[in-house]
Design a protein around this nucleic acid. Sequence first.
DNA 1: CTGTTAGCGCGTTCAA
DNA 2: TTGAACGCGCTAACAG
Lengths: 345, 345
Amino acid sequence: MVASTLAEVARLAGVSPATASRVLNGSARKPGPDIANRVRQAAESLGYVANAQAQGLAKSSSGLIGLVVHDIADPYFASIARGVQVAARNQGRMVLLATAAGAPEAEREAVAAFAARRADSIVLAGSRSARKEDTDANSALATELDRYCANGGQVAVVGHPVVGATSGTGYHVVAVPNEALAASLAADLTVLHTGRFIVVAGPESLFTSDDRIRGFQAGLAAAGREPAEVFRTQFTRSGGHAAGLSLARRIAAGEKDLCIFAVNDVMAIGVAAAIRGQDLRIPRDALIAGFDDIETLRDFQPELSTVHLPLEDIGAQAARRAGGDMDFIPITGHVALRRSTHHEE
Amino acid sequence: MVASTLAEVARLAGVSPATASRVLNGSARKPGPDIANRVRQAAESLGYVANAQAQGLAKSSSGLIGLVVHDIADPYFASIARGVQVAARNQGRMVLLATAAGAPEAEREAVAAFAARRADSIVLAGSRSARKEDTDANSALATELDRYCANGGQVAVVGHPVVGATSGTGYHVVAVPNEALAASLAADLTVLHTGRFIVVAGPESLFTSDDRIRGFQAGLAAAGREPAEVFRTQFTRSGGHAAGLSLARRIAAGEKDLCIFAVNDVMAIGVAAAIRGQDLRIPRDALIAGFDDIETLRDFQPELSTVHLPLEDIGAQAARRAGGDMDFIPITGHVALRRSTHHEE
DNA sequence: CTGTTAGCGCGTTCAA
DNA sequence: TTGAACGCGCTAACAG
């Protein structure tokens, strides 16, 4: 990558580099209009494109915002990414994207890379976990983040704080009320359903999953119901599918009147697909509810009952907080009951 | 953003900056192991993080790859983005993300921003259009790209070349065989369906949409069928939905034996949702096929017949070509007939 | 093998 | 208001 430099533009316009800089980039001092035009024309004719790296070096700030997600192809993260993107554009910044598949070590690498690029802020999306085998990687991540913050970086985490991060300056959390919302979902479902509940959840120690389980159980308890059985599987569509196959067997074997709460929509769809693949029907043979309200899944039939989360807003808020916009509003969601949890007449 | 510098590390280790650089970053010359350790320890204890901006300035190359999509929350683009991301990681580079909503002017801005950041290469995803009102913006985009290439940048475009770009060096196209695949789809559908065909398409002059229409019509013609009626709408889910409402009315009014080809899956889902909302059923009252084979939509019922496109591969190939990996294989897809186009017994 | 020097392209003091 | 000089952090030539 080579290109014409500010010096070349200045020479062609017959002015000093300093003046050219003042004209072409936002500066407090406004050079004379006559000279300004000469510079602009010179720049235009040379196809001058300011070197953001050099600008960043000189100003020690990059105009970059780093985003770490598990998987950008997952609609949950894609929506958040859109929000971050929109906010970034409004702030005149660009988004650096990294995917980490939920592995703390990969997240640490991403954070380090962002730090190297001198990103002004970093948004960490995707649920944290406290799994025993991740302890070391988690603390390495925390160390990396702490160092980044210590150097003046701003980080926003969606959902839960990073395990072990000393919440110093520059550290923000966009809290998602998973527990409370799961509790309302349970409350609403107990009105519709008098039978048993089963929760299809992610692996233990995954905060988001655990919060939603806890909230759901609390909601059931508040309604005087037995705690739901918890079925552990992967936090993905295929995890849901596996759970669904297993549950379908039980239903086929005579288990009736089940309401299944999958802790996210993608898992719920997996459960539903598996159950329907066994000649069973929803909601006739089992009710299903999810969580997240993924847009792409809204045309699914029967329409999936779920908890709506303003994902794009969440991403935007994360970017704004990390960007220094302090007037933020908390994240709220709401239960959306649809046909997948309505017993047929 | 401040951080300790290479000079500080060097001083603490009691060596020169050059030596420190040689140790901490990949250099041909390998300093003595004793000194190397001293440097590494100094770096570690200072929490040194190399400044990629400065490195980029010195080496005039940034390790950045720019990606422009219409909308990162659209599963089509999200899949491509994942591919780009994976390829970028394999090349040890990072992805800069921009969304442009398909507007050539926004795309031009993104390209300019990437150029300013001295991205090594740029991937442009999302269908081009030749709409009359976009002529100016398209040529501005072409100019920007030409300049970028002239300065040594590499650009890969998914689908169609940019209108007016002089295909100089550094300009690559990842061709998607839309026309041929649409023709095979038509051929296969004529075996299953003896009635009429309708194409639900995007606005005129949108290359991807137009190619798929043309291929489909050619496939019909080859099978001795009448050309399909073409229904123009938005290239989105809601465009499909609108078309679906209109078609549902016609079906309700007695029109029978229709096979609807929506030029992408998201539109197809919109069509299906609209039709089902009118108490009609698929495939009983109308067959529907889409294009793209979006992963998130695979659990839709009835399973959507479509044309499979290796979206992630497409993204990865684009990144690889732009990255200089020249041993590439062409993109291929295949028809995937599923239940949405099988007449019920 | 190591240290010294000179830029990479730009912003920003300072003096004029 | 304009220009000259310095420095941002690092790499790459050169010299020792």
